[in-house]
Amino acid sequence: MSGIALSRLAQERKAWRKDHPFGFVAVPTKNPDGTMNLMNWECAIPGKKGTPWEGGLFKLRMLFKDDYPSSPPKCKFEPPLFHPNVYPSGTVCLSILEEDKDWRPAITIKQILLGIQELLNEPNIQDPAQAEAYTIYCQNRVEYEKRVRAQAKKFAPS
């Protein structure tokens, strides 16, 4: 494992614990031996107030490669969400998460999670990743928002 990646992720964890947006979660997972795995984080993004996503808490896994922060983490909703920019596998399609697009090593975990929260309610229809959600979003916004509200209710924190 890269010392650069681990040191950056340790800084990220410290900064997150000191200050993070209300309702968001970002925690490194534990290895079988109980030690912390900084390369694999369990996160959760709350649906934004005043949107059909409100009330939901959407679980996301963030996986970092050894060359982080040169390369972005892979962000994957578990379980996958109904959304035009979420692949059926759950992987998020967002330009700041793509090395050859808008990724920059200075982007923080907090910025990534806030960017994904923004994307939930403002899909990028130029870059669809899920045919069904994309089609319904474009053709029947009322039905799309109904499905999103049902999903938010399903993923409401207990």
Rank of each mutant, 00 (worst) to 15 (best):
W41E: 08
Y134L: 05
F58Q: 07
Q111F: 14
Q139K: 10
N40R: 09
S89L: 09
V142H: 13
P72A: 13
Y137G: 03
K146Y: 12
Y68H: 08
W53T: 01
G3H: 08
G23L: 06
P88H: 14
I109V: 12
K14A: 02
R8L: 15
E98W: 10
D67I: 05
N37L: 09
P79D: 14
A10Y: 00
K76S: 15
I4S: 04
R147T: 14
L63C: 06
G47K: 03
P84G: 03
T29A: 09
L9S: 00
D102P: 02
R149N: 09
T29S: 14
P72Q: 09
A10V: 11
K76C: 11
T35I: 02
F58N: 01
R61L: 11
I96V: 14
V92L: 14
S7P: 14
A106G: 11
L120I: 07
K59R: 13
I4N: 06
I107D: 11
E132V: 08
P69D: 03
I107S: 13
N121L: 06
E42P: 03
G55Y: 14
K153A: 15
I116Q: 06
K74Q: 14
T91K: 05
A15K: 14
Q117P: 08
I45D: 04
E98I: 15
P73V: 14
E98Q: 02
F77K: 02
G90A: 05
A5R: 04
P32Y: 13
T29E: 13
Q139G: 07
K146Q: 09
Y137L: 07
M39S: 05
L9W: 06
E118K: 10
L38K: 00
K154Y: 09
N37Q: 14
K153M: 13
A15T: 13
P105K: 00
K146R: 12
L113P: 05
D127Q: 00
A26G: 09
P84R: 03
G34T: 04
H83Y: 00
A129M: 01
C138Y: 00
Q139M: 12
Y87H: 05
F58A: 06
P46R: 07
P28H: 07
R104V: 05
H20I: 05
P52T: 12
G55D: 14
G3M: 15
A150D: 12
F22G: 08
A150C: 10
F82C: 04
P105L: 03
P32S: 14
G47E: 02
L113F: 06
K110N: 09
G3R: 06
E12F: 02
P52S: 13
R104S: 10
Q139T: 12
K76I: 14
E99N: 08
E98K: 14
N40H: 14
F22M: 01
A129N: 00
R149W: 10
P79C: 13
R141K: 10
A5N: 12
H83A: 03
D127Y: 12
W16F: 09
K49R: 14
P84K: 00
D19F: 12
P80F: 12
P84A: 12
A26V: 02
Y134A: 10
D19E: 14
L120D: 00
T108V: 15
C43R: 00
D127C: 00
R141Q: 13
A5I: 15
P84E: 02
Q139E: 13
P52E: 14
P80C: 06
L113R: 01
E143H: 10
L57I: 10
V148E: 03
E132A: 10
N121D: 14
V27F: 03
A150F: 10
S7K: 07
I107A: 13
I112R: 07
N31R: 09
P79F: 12
E12P: 02
T29C: 13
T108P: 11
P80G: 13
W16N: 01
Y137T: 10
Q126H: 10
L113S: 10
K76A: 14
L119H: 07
G56E: 02
C93F: 00
R149H: 10
W53M: 04
E132Q: 09
C138Q: 11
C43K: 02
F22A: 05
E99T: 05
R17F: 02
A152W: 04
F155K: 06
E42T: 12
L94D: 07
P21L: 05
I109T: 07
R13I: 03
L60C: 14
E42M: 07
G55H: 13
E143V: 10
F22T: 01
